[in-house]
Amino acid sequence: MSARRWAVALGLLALALPFVLEGNRFLAFVYSIVMIHLIWANGMNLLYGYVGLMPLMFAGVAGVAAYAMIYLTRSHEWSFWLAAPMASLGASLFGVLLGLPSLRLTGFYFTLCSLVIQTVITLAFVFFPTFTNGDTGINQIAPPQAPWGGALSGVWMDETLAIVAVLSVLLCGWIVSTRLGKRFMAIREDDVLAEVLGIDVVRDRIIAFFIVSMFASIGGCLFAVTIGFISPRSFDVLTSLNIWLFVAFGGRGTLIGPIIGTIVLAPIPYLLQELQGFKDVLSGVLIIVVTLLMPGGVWGELLRWRDRRRARRALAVGQT
């Protein structure tokens, strides 16, 4: 089967699964969590995998959008379908503004700077209870309105998440194939050389960061209405690191890698609910294993192994 057919089959499967899992509320819930994290992982992959920056304030931006969306729907009685895009736009612009100084930095320095920004955002969530209800968090977040009236819930909520997740994969694939995506990869490989070849590195990083913040924000709004409860802990640095791990584990800079990473890792905390301590240990161990043993991630290492085998074969053919 060609890659395109595989992609179509996978997409259709993702859209069909909510109906298959309808009978089992627990599995359906886990599935919806995976879909939200898939949106996030695609955003993270765009910046970490294709531009080469590791944004640890990712969850923070998602949180700003989620809180803004709740504020707009509760205090101004906006519809979710208007509030979520507007809140996402606002949070993304806010994220770009905060990130502006750091976007001149590269690699490790950017990561450190983003960690500081994430910490500040988390503190802001705690210290501005007017909007966030502080550490207590906000519960009973109303689900979005259904087009046919009433609240969107159950299988149709899950289907909405699946649609947005599939769209996020398609969008990511499309961006990567454009001239902008090629500039991103040039910046990832060598930002100094990219600049000499006429690429406005800082401008392109800002564009990338804005797009990525939109992925984070929309995921954040959907997360809030799916779970029905958010607190500053929902959007702390561990959340950012988790999403980063999905991308790094699956294979950064590939379209399939983050999908693999999310499907394998996102359900773990929910499937191991009785072993709460264990899941943090597992995350830690996985981060070490990925960094030391599979820098390319599962999919990246697989591709590398295939290339090596091909090269060996070509060599063998050449020798005979």
Binding site: R179, K182, R183, M185, A186, E189, D190, V192, L193, A194, V196, L197, G198, I199
Partner: peptide, 26 residues
Amino acid sequence: LTRTYQAVRVFSGLSVARNIETASLL
């Protein structure tokens, strides 16, 4: 106005064709 470097500088992770394509973007 462009330049090269004392230590050779190409996108070593990308194929030769992709290197040239990237340069041709501008």
